[in-house]
Amino acid sequence: MAQKTIERSEEEWKKVLTPEQYHVMREKGTERPFSGSLYYNKEKGIYTCAACGQELFSSDTKFESGTGWPSFYDVISSDRVKLKEDTSYFMSRIEVVCSRCGSHLGHVFDDGPAPTGKRYCINSIALNFKKEGEEDKQGGEGK
């Protein structure tokens, strides 16, 4: 089940997030492909929202898509993300946002592997990684 919703003013988000995170997560920007540290991560664990700490993806569903961003074929639970139509940049895509804090994470496409056929293409900067057996560094409520 999704955790309690977190609401903050944009000024509060600017204090919690780095400028790069703010641009991606609150202004719906994107990071350069192949630039994110979690793109190359092969360790077992859980990927959490960098803004609020909600658990989003398991390393068990991460796969190499070749796109330059961490890709997953499923979320931990469907209530952890919200999907929204995105028609920016003259494209039709489905935006993925954290259901707890509303932060932009990336997009989902229908060209992923079995069993779901989905590719959640997520900005590395929008995620933190909790290694299997470790506590979340964020404590579940932002930085």
Rank of each mutant, 00 (worst) to 15 (best):
R100A: 05
G29F: 04
Y47W: 09
S35C: 03
G140H: 12
V96G: 02
S71I: 14
C98Q: 05
E135A: 15
Y40R: 11
M1W: 10
S103Y: 00
T61M: 08
S78W: 06
S59W: 05
S99C: 07
P19Y: 08
E12L: 15
D110M: 04
W69D: 04
S58P: 14
E10F: 10
S92W: 04
Y40C: 09
E141A: 14
F90D: 11
N128P: 07
C101N: 05
D74H: 15
C49L: 01
R119C: 13
A114H: 05
N123W: 01
T30Y: 01
K137D: 01
E31W: 02
A126M: 05
R119A: 14
S37Y: 08
E10Q: 13
G68R: 04
T67A: 03
S103M: 05
Y47I: 12
Q3C: 11
N128I: 11
L38P: 10
R119F: 03
T67N: 04
K82Y: 00
S9V: 06
I94P: 04
H23I: 05
G142W: 03
Y40I: 01
E7R: 12
H23K: 14
G139I: 14
T87N: 13
A114E: 03
S35Q: 01
R80A: 08
C52T: 14
G140V: 14
S65W: 03
F90C: 15
P113A: 13
M91S: 13
G53R: 09
G53P: 09
